[in-house]
Amino acid sequence: MTDPLALDPVLSPEERSRLPYHDPDLSHEERYDAFVEHVHAGRKVEARDWMPDEYRNGVLRFVEMHANSELMGVLPEREWIMRAPTLKRKLALTAKVQDEVGHAQLLYRVAEDLGKPREQMLQDLLDGKTKFHNVFHYPTRSWGDVGIIAWLVDAAAIVAQQALRESSYGPYSRTMKKICWEESVHIMHGRDVIVTMMSGTHTQRGMVQEALDRWWGPLMQMHGPRSDRSKDRDLFWRIKAKTSEELRQEFLSIYVPRIRELGLEIPDPVLHYDEGAGRWEYSEPDWNELRTVVTGHGPMSQERLEFRRLHHAESAWVRATVLAAPVAAAA
């Protein structure tokens, strides 16, 4: 893997201090304008830079939700680590889920630098004050789900994540390079699980199709409703680089042929590529379902949060022990 820092040289503190928005003689408006110009020129913002509150809060909210999603995304998959049917699959799935926990850790670190302690972020997640991605509010029913999640949910995610490597917030963009590299391995693992099952028995093929039927709706909702590019503040600040619809089109372009190639049927009779318009047409995703689910009313939202609350409370004593001042062991 290429060293991310080699691609994005971080300026020395002295050079950074000379960036125009760090000039204390400028008015707030002048600094704000200089900051916007810096970001719009495609340059990076670092954790200790001066930044407008709107930018700081925007990045924090975006990264915190991403971190929450990585952490909550562990729960639907963790029970299948126990159930993995071969030694090789168990090793692969254990490593994959470990990656997701690692991503949560990295992303909470990025968010922490913007001023919100990790413990507070975890508490807000447990209290339902912050959100996580829609796909992690659904149940998993079979080994087919393990393949579909690792292949297609991670594929839909990586389409968005690859665009985030260009984020204006330097620590986030660098973290995304590492995360994308690992996610691409997950997709290979997921595809291998699916290909093996599709080459297997009638029951196995049915298991995959049934899983795809259940996951297609949430997958199409995952990137969110179409939005007005000019009104999207995350785009304005270059926190993200692409609109929801751009991401969805990209996902469909890459994955519809790959899904069909395996003999799977996508449960949307409308789905086709319109050559004239140069875009995929599809049945309108259920945006009410998306809103209901991400506000904590999905089929597994409360159960998963309750599970996490329970374990967070049960292990509070361990965190208290580690964070306390060291006490000499009894002689």
Binding site: V74, R78, Q98, V101, V322
Partner: peptide, 8 residues
Amino acid sequence: TGIAPMLE
């Protein structure tokens, strides 16, 4: 996995 006392 997923529920250890600390992410680390």
